[in-house]
Amino acid sequence: MSEGWNKMSDQGQEMDAYNFAYLDEQTKRMIRRAILKALAVPGYQVPFASREMPMPYGWGTGGVQVSAATLTPEDTFKVIDQGADDTTNAVSIRRFFERTAGVATTDETAQASVIQTRHRIPETPLTEDQILVYQVPIPEPLRFLEPSEVETRKMHSLEEYGLMHVKLYEDISRHGEIATSYAYPVKVEGRYVMDPSPIPKFDNPKLSDCPAIQLFGAGREQRIYALPPYTRVVSLDFEDHPFIPSKADHACDLCASRDSYLDEVITDDAGGRMFVCSDTDYCRTRRASATPGLNSPDMTEACS
């Protein structure tokens, strides 16, 4: 990573209109500092001076800035939105970095060195060579119950996290179980309570002990936080209502996987529906490698 950065600052004058990966070097330095601090204090929200990006807030400006500060020319970049590489958000961010950084891009999780994601962790296990960058809308897990930033910061610094359980209590009292199904709060290394971004709680176990670096960027809220490799991440729960990483009780109608997170797709007006992997790369790879007969062409069509 550092090799690439040096190279770029040497070549800085050769770029005409844009710097490598859009951001100027000062900004990247500032963001990298924030990232390093975030890695040093896992789960702690580091404030940073979020820049205006050529896309609206809510479209991943935090993730884009973190990616821009992380990418080197040698990287291979992948973007997913809800597990898919081909949705508007993913396509436009991928195109943005193709243009401003000229990096190689891929749909294959295993081939990517930097993966920017919105709302999912890929099914394919990540490795030590990879960085996963999350787009985060609201980084503060305590925000919905405590509107004061001064107060939430104090709660983090003093480890006063009773309020987080109040949220889960409310869930159980209203729904009979912990109904929070995404952005499920976690505790990092027994210290900071963290919002894992709106990934389904099915993905929560993948946060923990992950070989890859996980970076979280919130553009509008101007916060960066991180999980260094192999960090212990525990989903909050009650003794008598333990955390369950649930998914639809179904197999993928395309690749027959029983282990991956599924999207429910409505196929017609008559209530017809099917369950398919939300991770499109994972699903495609499985279908390519085996299980003939299941992946009929019509069904592929229906889901794409």
Binding site: G162, L163, V166, I172
Partner: peptide, 14 residues
């Protein structure tokens, strides 16, 4: 009512 209990570490919903 439960908040203070949870704040001092009570983790059993029932």
């Amino acid at each position: 009512v439960g908040e203070r209990l949870m704040a001092v570490g009570e983790r059993h919903y029932g």
